[in-house]
């Protein structure tokens, strides 16, 4: 169980958080203009990489804020924590 440094509350145990899948997938502004394939790309396609992955997390049992983390999926090391709308500090 890892520790997550919530950008609003500080370091808390993973059990306080809820994972929200891959980060930086923006909802299309004009969905009606997309083809089925383009919409499916947004809707269903997610990466599942070994290595640093950018993820959305929600401090569900805390401040209820959503934020992003960069986590190495091979060893669960969290490389960066950053607020929604911000750019990751690692690659």
């Amino acid at each position: 169980m890892f520790l997550i440094n919530c950008p609003f509350c500080g370091e808390r145990e993973q059990s306080e958080f809820k994972a929200g899948g891959e980060a930086h997938i923006e909802r299309p502004k004009q969905p009606t203009e997309l083809s089925d394939d383009e919409w499916a790309e947004f809707l269903f396609m997610r990466k599942n990489i070994k290595g640093v992955q950018f993820e959305r997390w929600n401090h569900a049992h805390g401040c209820r804020k959503w934020f992003n983390i960069a986590r190495d999926t091979s060893n669960d090391q969290i490389k960066a924590v950053y607020k929604m709308g911000e750019k990751p500090t690692v690659k």
Partner: peptide, 13 residues
């Protein structure tokens, strides 16, 4: 509530 918060905070801030 969680879903609505998600949209508010992440898609439509």
């Amino acid at each position: 509530l969680e879903k609505l918060e998600d949209y508010l905070q992440t898609e439509w801030p």
